[in-house]
Amino acid sequence: MQLKDGFGLRDVCGEKVLVPEGLENIDYSRIINLNETAAYLWENLVGKEFEIEDMVDLLCKEYDVPADVALNDCNALAKKWIEAGLAK
């Protein structure tokens, strides 16, 4: 999997927000609100080729969460990112 280029992650009053930038996303008119965990994953995965297992490793490294729970959450998040046009 890969996150799409051209999204800038910014902090708006303590909230993490993805804002489309540059020509790649000139027609992408939405901005996306990420929670803290999703923002942590995004920051560590952007620009890389990765698998669900890499997401799980990142989560388990940072948070006290069992691997099976993390796997479920990461699958759900990856699906959402693909649906929202943020990953392919």
Binding site: V12, C13, V17, R30, I31, N33
Partner: peptide, 8 residues
Amino acid sequence: LVSVQSFA
């Protein structure tokens, strides 16, 4: 609006 909606 809340902050993120305000930004948007």
